[in-house]
Design a protein around this nucleic acid. Structure first.
Lengths: 204, 204
DNA sequence: ACATTTGTTAACCATTTGGTTAAACTAATA
DNA sequence: TATTAGTTTAACCAAATGGTTAACAAATGT
């Protein structure tokens, strides 16, 4: 057999499964649909991944593993909180514009199965806030930032960055934007969000 | 027949459907499961609501109709932006603590079926930002607020308030909180979030 | 009292769905 | 070139699922 072809079929399946699972969710996805998307026989899905559940987990883990490094990189580098916020906002928004279904997929499946995150947490490389917390407290002590709880600040940062992708249909409707102007709206958040946060927490 | 009993059966179904649909989503929900939850025969679901789709829509519309007035009340009253933000943050968080599955349910289903919001928009009472925008611009001109785009501000407000309910499993894992301390965390956001926003936009 | 409408149930049905099987095919190896 | 191991396919299967039906029960109106 040909190892290259092995991989391409296996990867074609994962790719197709990613598309279907991320748009329709675990429950809404059909094995046949994934097979069609990958242009292979349905039996191949089971040949390579055994069951829908295992195929789903392969997709989910891959999706999650795309997000964690983004967070870690910024939480653990040595830059100032202001720089962290600027970098994160810029990078994360750019990344999400390329993977717009990802936040919804992860959040929905995690909410449907809360125990699932316990498994992920055991993984090395699961984001850790310790260094970020220390840095926040340090800058508060130095008078750079006004007093704020680091957990609250962290949640505020990710909320402001992720929500536009989660709530896109809602926001589009509320603010009366079409696809194009919504894209511009999100694009402008790359800088607006960090200004907004820094305005709030930086001692002036 | 007995009109009171009619209503209770019909309402028992809607109540059960709400529980199941909101936790499992349209695709994950089973008609039999809803019937069991309501402790009635499965055929009754079809007798009163015709199909799964229509039952789902009844649940969805009811859920959505709980959110819209909350938004409208605050967008359209005559208070200052600062008061709007304080009221909204306090009220919305309290409300969501009582209906924690609501945001996820609405956001997930809306993302799976983007056209669906068009129907909702035709409804009278669909939230409208005009008055809010005018008030924001007014306060900017008066020098109360620093310049900020009203749409961006609006998205920031709802992002900061809704995200803790959408991303609960994620945030719990990242910040290492158990159920109780997460509850306290969210509780404290009732005031923290408005302080955070006002800090950012109020001219000092 | 009786016919009619409304509500409820159990059994049933067609279709869909995840998953299996066995045979056919491919390509490297001995 | 025969063997072997891995790959792919079509046909199949049992269980689950949304939905229907027909008989029965309980109100309601006349």
């Amino acid at each position: 057999m040909n190892k290259t072809k092995d991989q391409t079929t296996e990867i074609k399946i994962l790719e197709a499964a990613k598309n279907i699972f991320q748009t329709k969710g675990m429950d809404g996805a059909r094995m046949q649909e994934i097979a069609d998307e990958a242009k292979i026989n349905k039996a191949m899905l089971h040949y390579y991944y055994r069951s829908k559940q295992l195929l789903f987990e392969a997709v989910f883990k891959q999706a999650f593993s795309l997000l964690a490094p983004q967070l870690n990189a910024i939480l653990n580098d040595d830059s100032s909180i202001e720089e962290k916020i600027k970098n994160f906002t810029e990078n994360y928004t750019s990344f999400m514009m390329k993977h717009p279904y990802l936040p919804n997929f992860i959040i929905h499946e995690l909410n449907k199965n809360e125990e699932f995150i316990v498994k992920l947490k055991q993984n090395t490389g699961f984001p850790n806030l310790e260094k970020f917390k220390i840095k926040v407290e340090d800058e508060i002590n130095k008078g750079i930032l006004i007093p704020i709880n680091a957990d609250q600040l962290f949640v505020n940062i990710i909320a402001l960055n992720i929500f536009p992708f989660l709530g896109k249909p809602l926001i589009k409707a509320f603010t009366d934007k079409d696809e194009q102007s919504y894209k511009e709206f999100v694009e402008s958040r790359k800088t607006e969000v960090s200004k907004f946060i820094i305005n709030s927490i930086k001692r002036s």
